[in-house]
Design a protein around this nucleic acid. Structure first.
Lengths: 187, 187
DNA sequence: GGACAGCGAGAACTATCGTTCTCGCGAGTC
DNA sequence: GACTCGCGAGAACGATAGTTCTCGCTGTCC
């Protein structure tokens, strides 16, 4: 879905607040204040908080996948590209505002009562696994490799979020190197 | 903290509801109905919803760690014990009610606004990593092994929750076997 | 047997939520 | 200059949250 500049700006603000505090903890009034628009205008841009959240998730998916791809494609060869995934995570974890994966967080908060959130989270994670599968194919790796590399990335995200440290990125990268060696170098 | 039988029963009910729907989506009235106690009695057992959540998290930690240890200790040798961690996860993921790790979910929902929840989640994950580190030490593995195995377990939990399948447990186990081979068999 | 303490059921209270409505100002048009 | 239209500010509304209070029953002790 294409967003107008005003919608886009509101989505940016909502994304920041939802991510910082959780969806439920952010009221429409908070959004209004933070975005500097009237409540009427806010409801003109999105008909409800749910629709706004959907737009937030859609944009976050796009931005995240683009950021990942940019980091990955800067690497010279297939194997390095796979490892670049974890370098991307390391940069992300080091951001001041990092608080885990939005989709995991939102799944925890709303997944039990709002099936659409589950669908979004699932689609996001499927896309990530699919992207990894493409990189693995380029590297000539076996079909089981991408899911294992994905697990390391997922584990690193929750671990970094909860521990509040960036260590998990390096640990995941090291583990990935071992698995890559086993998968690509034979043995 | 020791709980009375009545507190214990309420904690069981609250745990089930919080886990199914998320903390915020469960009202005190829902708890009252589900537990079959009066509101007055409920507030006699725990002074607030927050204290009740704390008790829920504390109990879930205990139960989960005990369940893990039981599965692990049934395995005959150190290496098999490490792999039993993923068999424990497989059983858990297959439960009808599985919806991910409570601590990850609650972190996503409340971690941004309630520091105590962050502390609990961190303590739980630290305890898990510490337990793994003990198993790794028994197996004579290097210090970097336990964190990597933990990442696989964490990744499997979120992946199983969001995907709604149990595949992640087997994938994590297979990855763990590769890493174990590299760590324990040299090379 | 009567007073009283304890407790269950649920109304009441206060706050806050998402959403809608009202009001009034300011710009654009003939 | 009057009329209108659009929009910002924020009050209002209905629902629901967490928590407390009221009331009436029951069971117990002197």
């Amino acid at each position: 879905m294409e967003l107008s500049p005003d919608q886009r700006q509101l989505v940016d603000v909502a994304d920041r607040l939802f991510y910082e505090r959780g969806v439920h903890a952010v009221g429409m009034d908070d959004l209004r204040t933070a975005a500097g628009v009237s409540l009427k205008r806010l409801y003109g841009l999105f008909p409800s908080k749910r629709e706004l959240l959907v737009a937030v998730l859609a944009q976050r998916h796009e931005v995240w996948m683009r950021g990942l791809a940019a980091r990955v494609e800067a690497a010279p060869d297939p194997r390095t590209r796979l490892l670049a995934v974890y370098d991307f995570l390391a940069d992300w974890f080091a951001e001041e505002t990092f608080r885990g994966c939005s989709f995991i967080n939102v799944f925890g908060e709303l997944g039990g009562t709002w099936p659409e959130v589950v669908r979004f989270a699932r689609a996001h994670k499927d896309a990530f696994r699919g992207y990894l599968a493409g990189l693995v194919a380029e590297a000539g790796g076996p079909g089981w490799l991408a899911p294992q590399l994905a697990l390391l990335a997922e584990g690193a995200q929750t671990t970094a979020a909860i521990s509040g440290t960036t260590d998990a990125a390096g640990e995941a990268r090291a583990a990935a190197e071992i698995i890559l060696a086993a998968a690509l170098d034979g043995r």
